[in-house]
Design a protein around this nucleic acid. Sequence first.
DNA 1: GTTTATGCAAATTCTTTGCAATACT
DNA 2: AGTATTGCAAAGAATTTGCATAAAC
Lengths: 142, 142
Amino acid sequence: MTKVSQEQLVDVLSKHQLRKTETRIHVLNIFFNNEYALAHSALEKQLGNAYDRVTIYRTLNTFEEAGIIHQVPSSGEAKFALCHAHCDHQHHQDQHLHFNCTNCKQTFCLENVNIPTIDYPKNYEVHSLHITATGVCKNCKI
Amino acid sequence: MTKVSQEQLVDVLSKHQLRKTETRIHVLNIFFNNEYALAHSALEKQLGNAYDRVTIYRTLNTFEEAGIIHQVPSSGEAKFALCHAHCDHQHHQDQHLHFNCTNCKQTFCLENVNIPTIDYPKNYEVHSLHITATGVCKNCKI
DNA sequence: GTTTATGCAAATTCTTTGCAATACT
DNA sequence: AGTATTGCAAAGAATTTGCATAAAC
């Protein structure tokens, strides 16, 4: 079930100079095992009320500041996804399409969609680029 | 200063079978005169506390349901922008790049950026497509 | 032992709802 | 006149802050 080992999770925290607490390892594991972006509420459900709501807010903030996760532009609740290997503090590039389902409210990452390069004006400093489609996902489409 | 005449604003409301109230005309005018997507808070500021906060919430909901505005995926607060001529209740296509400035928090629409066509899986029903870049805008870049 | 994170309580802020008064058609 | 919209009050969520306790280093 678990894609990532405990050691790998701990390693991520080490690399970002964060203390290895149970909450953080648990939250990080969920992000690694999830194919879509997670909002605070979704995370809370998955954690099964094991931790205080406030702790989850703070964990998300800490991870975002550390550059482990980043906010995914979406309609409604703020959603977060893991940063990829080529992300750093300044640049977050998601080379896949985010799909927001209006029915089940989930945000999928369609990894296998080809994203063309977009030319943006030179005088704008782009840190991240997100392509978001909204509609009905394959599961909700009857 | 005003790009749109009073008649045109009233006309938009008429076309959507909405009553022509002061609040709605005022809010609509702001949307027409704004080059970027607006969050509730920004709108409230521009309206200068002339109307109740609740009324603004309801106006935004009404406009969204009527198909006059649509939510723009963003990080943080929900933001709205005018629907274009080719938008209908089901399909909102923004053929321009949205740029989220992390400094001034504004969302610009870069109209003159060429957006390539994106092929998404056939089993997903896409209603709208948004491309959002995050970074520092030309005004905030020193 | 020192520093940082957690959990609880409480304060803020954001958003929605009910209802009487008002404005629109 | 009849119906929809507004503003106020208040309820309900969502998010943040302060501080003592507990855990990590």
